[in-house]
Design a protein around this nucleic acid. Structure first.
Length: 471
RNA sequence: GGUCCCAUCGUCUAGGGGUUAGGACAUCGGCCUCUCACGCCGGUAACGGGGGUUCAAAUCCCCCUGGGAUCACCA
């Protein structure tokens, strides 16, 4: 069987957006699933709008998504000679011709056509003139005027286009640079791309490209057009819908595996399964299961899926993605047991890495600041007894703490004071974390260790005394 | 406007002639509980409308409606 070769061909006129990431993902997954090849091509023929920063931003986003490629990146801007060679081939074979009609004339043509209710298209003035190359001439493709062109779309099914709808579109500008529909075909053809999965917005280009493949005498690739990703108002996802940049999701604290899981699942399904690891995606992804209708990007569901991936991920994986967030908070820590332990206590209460980072600070600060409300409510003279008892009992315990031992210690404090666990745990929680919301008290103590815990309990005792004397 | 595509809970979707139309997110109850979560149990909630075909239509066909895409010497 022929090796499947897919590609992702973004134009570097901005960051990688969500929709682009999804087509990249579909192509990448399919090539991986089929044991094929995936090539990256940068479509930077628009010199004015293409920037180096955009290229870097795209690489950056692909790197985060962990999408790698087997060939490329190729830059169209470096392939001009190749395109020109094929332009000449089409002229030589009579499939293209020079046209000297000016843009003004073309405009006039369109206007006239609009008035009479006809299609605004090139009227073929130069089609049979047999003009030679000249300074202001463009090259037009000599499209068939009758018959039909069939697009056999693996996702949408067969789509028939009337050739009479098509006009002699420009394949090479008067300045000598080839146009999009032409370079895409030449690239895909010469790069051996045999499976083209791309956004819905390219459907109308496909018959043009098929005609070009035929004129060039090349075999057709398989086409598949995936539906668009829409915003909450059902319009195509754009800046006004909030974050559309892939890296924005990285910065909000989503795990790449969760993000790709969500993106793939938006428009593709595998029975009732919602959660997929990257390997499962590669194993199960097929073109047949891609849906036909557009989907609305739902950050709430992405967040829920992210929470699931956080629960399923290895602490080391989380830690490596979490460290940049900690850095932002001024927490510098090394990967290792302490960090992993802290992470594990927060895994079930963090939907994003940002949330985790927000809740993990107390493990690393030397002096904790008490949340005012929490301190006022729980660090009262009545808590003095249990806190100091606990401090004493924990000091006597040897490390590492076992959960059972800790339970026993608390139980004995409960017995001695006659207080319920809740009455003891809350003051202790505030003493250890500064707030009234945190992971379970036993797990915190286990992770923090004796030195830190007893120090904080002592500090809380001082705080209470100090406060009492002020009042 | 022309051309093209699409249409199952609010959202993502399963289901493709006979189903109590299933799951997930969200939402609403309840349980669990040292706070917050997690988890568990349960509820509300969908086949856009109209015609056919058929014993039988969410499912096949047509029309309508609605949404989207595209109509460059941009990609």
């Amino acid at each position: 069987m022929e090796t499947i070769v897919t590609r992702f061909a973004p134009s570097p006129t901005g960051y990688l957006h969500v929709g682009g990431a999804r087509t990249a993902l579909f192509n990448w997954l399919y090539s991986r699933h089929m044991n094929g090849k995936f090539v990256l091509r940068i479509e930077d023929t628009d010199r004015v709008r293409s920037t180096r920063e955009s290229v870097d931003a795209i690489f950056d986003a692909l790197k985060w998504l962990e999408i790698d490629w087997d060939e490329g990146p190729f830059f169209q801007s470096e392939r001009q000679e190749i395109y020109l060679k094929y332009v000449n081939q089409l002229i030589d074979t009579g499939n293209a011709y020079y046209c000297t009609c000016t843009p003004e004339q073309i405009d006039l043509m369109r206007k006239k056509a609009m008035e009479t209710g006809d299609k605004p298209k090139y009227d073929g003035t130069c089609r049979e003139k047999g003009l030679g190359k000249s300074d202001n001439a463009v090259v037009r493709f000599k499209a068939p005027v009758s018959g039909t062109t069939l697009v056999e779309d693996v996702i949408k099914g067969n789509i028939v286009f009337q050739n009479s709808e098509q006009d002699d579109f420009v394949i090479c500008r008067s300045n000598g640079t080839p146009t999009y529909n032409f370079v895409v075909v030449v690239d895909d053809m010469t790069m051996g791309i045999n499976t083209i999965i791309r956004g819905d917005d390219h459907v109308m280009n496909t018959p043009k490209q098929i005609l070009l493949y035929q004129a060039l005498g090349s075999k057709l690739p398989v086409f598949g057009h995936v539906p668009m990703v829409l915003g909450g108002d059902r319009a195509r996802l754009s800046k006004r819908h909030g974050a559309t940049s892939v890296t924005a999701y990285r910065d909000m604290g989503f795990l790449p595996d969760a993000f790709i899981n969500y993106l793939v699942r938006l428009g593709w399904s595998f029975g009732d399964q919602e959660f997929f690891t990257r390997d499962e995606l590669i194993e199960k992804f097929t073109l047949e299961n891609i849906g036909k209708s557009a989907g609305i990007f739902d950050q709430t569901k992405l967040t829920a899926l992210n929470a699931d991936h956080i629960k399923a991920a290895a602490p080391d994986t989380i830690s490596c993605h979490l460290i940049p967030f900690l850095k932002k908070e001024g927490i510098t820590t090394q990967p290792g047991d302490y960090l992993n332990g802290a992470i594990q206590t927060l895994v079930t209460r963090s939907k994003t890495l940002q949330e985790m980072s927000d809740g993990i600070g107390f493990y690393f600060s030397d002096d904790i600041e008490f949340d005012e409300k929490a301190a006022k409510k729980f660090l009262k003279p009545g808590a003095l007894g249990p806190i100091s008892m606990l401090e004493a009992k924990l000091s006597a315990l040897s490390e590492p703490f076992e959960e059972k031992e800790l339970e026993a210690v608390f139980k004995s404090v409960m017995d001695d004071t006659g207080l319920k666990l809740g009455k003891i745990a809350q003051p202790v929680r505030v003493a250890l974390t500064g707030t009234s919301v945190s992971p379970g008290i036993f797990e915190i103590i286990q992770v923090m260790g004796k030195t830190k815990v007893t120090k904080r309990l002592a500090a809380a005792v001082d705080y209470i005394n100090e406060r009492a004397s002020v009042e």
